[in-house]
Design a protein around this nucleic acid. Sequence first.
DNA 1: TAAATTAGAACGAACGTTCGTTCTAATTGC
DNA 2: GCAATTAGAACGAACGTTCGTTCTAATTTA
Lengths: 195, 195
Amino acid sequence: MNQAQAQTTDTRTLVLDAALTLFSDRGYFNTSVHDIGRASGISIGSIYHHFGDKEGLARALYAGLTSRMQQLIGEVEHEATGSHDQARALVSRLFVLTETEPRAMAFMLYARHREFLPDEPPVCSSRPFAMMRDMVSRGMARGEIRRMDAMVASTCLFGGPLRMITARLDGILERPLPDYLDEVWACAWRSVAAH
Amino acid sequence: MNQAQAQTTDTRTLVLDAALTLFSDRGYFNTSVHDIGRASGISIGSIYHHFGDKEGLARALYAGLTSRMQQLIGEVEHEATGSHDQARALVSRLFVLTETEPRAMAFMLYARHREFLPDEPPVCSSRPFAMMRDMVSRGMARGEIRRMDAMVASTCLFGGPLRMITARLDGILERPLPDYLDEVWACAWRSVAAH
DNA sequence: TAAATTAGAACGAACGTTCGTTCTAATTGC
DNA sequence: GCAATTAGAACGAACGTTCGTTCTAATTTA
């Protein structure tokens, strides 16, 4: 990578970082492009050069985070075998991620993308969520998970954990999420386990 | 109620209805006060006379819906006895309400209030959610629900059903929610039931 | 190697538009 | 006739975006 490319990467990263912080702190509509410029130390012109428009910036952020999430699920699927272990590992990783990168998690799970990215499908339709549903379907085929509507099963299995995450992001949970993992997972698995 | 008061009520209702529709369709920030005036047939001046400012309008909407929700939970608590029956009745009512008044439900559960009502606590801290947690705590004291962190228990019990509601609002569920009630409730209760 | 040329990244003042809000006049109900 | 309500034109601040320019590094030419 030559110096120009490195600089481009730096600039984009600086802008995306600032945007993530501001978007998840105050929301997309309470953040102006000027705010992002100020916070990142990058000029307005440069931001528009790299991202086209404000929506393009949000799109880039969303795409980056979605692909990271996809990767995380992929890793979990390879590290563990069996739906129980895979799903538990996934919840564990998500809990840790919420503590280490709350802003990323907030933007992924919590932001109302439809309001500022009209062309994106809802988060629940995105690749990562589809992968979670597949994980559950395989568990059902294998007899680990009770036979039922696949959508219902994955909603019940991950619904509790995901709400714990949003509760934590809302600041109404005192202790870090991993402290609750065992208790939450026991409930979640019990709700769909075959035996 | 004299005619003036009746007219005031009408005006407020017209405005609140239009605001609810627009807010839940496009979001608070994609809706201008002029849009609300046009949609309701009420003038800008009148809207500002009744609600003070745009935020006051959102606050009135939020307060009205919160109190309706509170009332609904209160009714359920009186109609049924035992945490199991109460919680199941509540989920059932919420599923029906989502079908009959999706916009109200979307505004309550789905909107990011913090972004436009900076002084309101997060939804999860609101009265209705506190009542749901109390319902679970009583069930635990009574031995119906497994002993565990109260927050975890209520999140696990209602997490699945609430996510089903948001899935339905996102349009990724084909059939009406009540069709899924038995299956969803079985999972939810299993996750926290004592025996 | 030194100078000339090119590519594109960065800059920020300026623009047009939109939005929330205010203001004054008109209307209504008692 | 008086207070409350409605009306909608007008206002000003803030926003997303554009554009002419400068700067910097890479490439070509001699």
